[in-house]
Each structure stands twice: as structure tokens, then as C-alpha cells.
Computed example of a mutant assay.
Amino acid sequence: MRDGILHNPRCSKSRETLNLLRDRGVDLPVIEYLQTPPTKAELAEICRLLGVKPLQLVRTKEALFAELGLGKDNGYSDAQWLAVLAEHPKLLERPIVIHKGRAAIGRPPEQVLALFDGR
């Protein structure tokens, strides 16, 4: 997965994270993931970098989650959750910053700064 910030300009935490990085002189490609959704393979790589299961990247409080009839305990496999995220990128937790083979979720935004220690 290439370096960048998976960004949703309508999300306040995503905007805060992007501004924080820019204020610190970090210039990363901005990937508006709703316009250019990550593939299942890219999502799997993001999970690997974060050390999480795909379900942990799902925004379960998003209205779309309920609209789709999804549930945290529905027995979906990791592959099935990756497919859900690939098909419905609005459900993807954000922002996600990827830098030099590491990743962090910007919740809170300051959490991503650890990726740039020693750059």
C-alpha cells in the first residue's frame, strides 16, 4: 500500500489530521477514498499494517451499517468484511495514515504523529 492519508473532506477528524500533518511539514498524498476506494487487497494490507481485523475498521455507528442489515456478530469472515468495506467505503474508519510500511488511524488525530518519529 502506498503512503498517503485516506481522507474524507467531510469528516472533521480527517480534516484535523490532515491539517496537523501539514502544520508539522508532512506532505503526504491525499487519497479521497470515497472517490477512489481501496480494493479488498489494499484493505487487507491496511489491516495488516494496523494489526487489526477488518471488522475493527468498520464504522458500525454509521447509518449505512444498519441500512445494510449488518451486525458485529453476524458471523462474517474477515474476507466478507473486506468485501463489505470495498463495496461500501463510507463504512471505512477514517482517517488512516500510511507511511513507510506503517499505519495509524487518526482518532485522535495526534495518534498518527508516531509514524513520523525519526521519519
Rank of each mutant, 00 (worst) to 15 (best):
R119Q: 13
R2E: 15
D3L: 04
S12G: 03
H7M: 05
V97D: 04
G118S: 07
A104N: 07
P37G: 07
L20R: 06
I105S: 02
L49M: 12
Q56M: 14
K40A: 15
G4Y: 00
L92T: 08
Q35V: 05
P37E: 01
P38D: 00
L50S: 00
G51H: 03
E87I: 05
L28G: 09
R94G: 03
L68D: 09
L57I: 06
A79V: 00
G106Q: 07
I31C: 14
L91K: 06
L85W: 04
R2Y: 11
L21G: 10
V26M: 03
T17P: 06
R59H: 06
P89Y: 01
T17S: 10
L50E: 00
E16S: 14
G51F: 05
I31D: 10
K100T: 13
R2A: 12
L21N: 05
L85M: 00
Q56K: 13
L115P: 01
L49A: 09
S14E: 05
G106L: 05
E45T: 11
F116L: 09
K53D: 14
E93G: 02
I98R: 12
K61P: 01
V84R: 01
P29I: 00
L28D: 04
T36F: 11
L50H: 02
P9L: 11
E87T: 12
L28E: 03
E42G: 08
L91M: 08
I5D: 11
G71C: 10
A104I: 06
R48I: 09
R107G: 04
L64E: 03
Q111H: 15
W81E: 04
I31T: 09
N19D: 14
A104D: 06
A103T: 02
G71A: 15
E32N: 13
R15E: 04
R107F: 07
R119K: 14
L34Y: 02
E87M: 11
T39C: 03
L82D: 00
L113A: 11
A41V: 02
P9A: 13
P109F: 04
Q80V: 07
D27C: 12
Q35W: 06
E93M: 01
G51C: 05
A86Y: 06
E67F: 13
W81R: 04
L34D: 01
K90C: 09
C11R: 04
E62T: 11
D78Y: 09
M1A: 12
K72I: 14
S12H: 07
D73K: 14
L20F: 04
I5M: 15
Q35T: 06
V58S: 00
R24V: 10
P89Q: 00
S12V: 04
V52R: 10
L43G: 07
K13E: 02
P89M: 01
A83D: 12
H88A: 00
Y33A: 08
R107K: 08
I31M: 14
R59T: 08
A79M: 01
D117W: 02
G25N: 08
F65M: 02
V30R: 10
V58W: 07
R59S: 05
D78V: 08
K100Y: 13
C47I: 02
D73Y: 10
D78Q: 09
A86G: 09
K53N: 12
R59P: 02
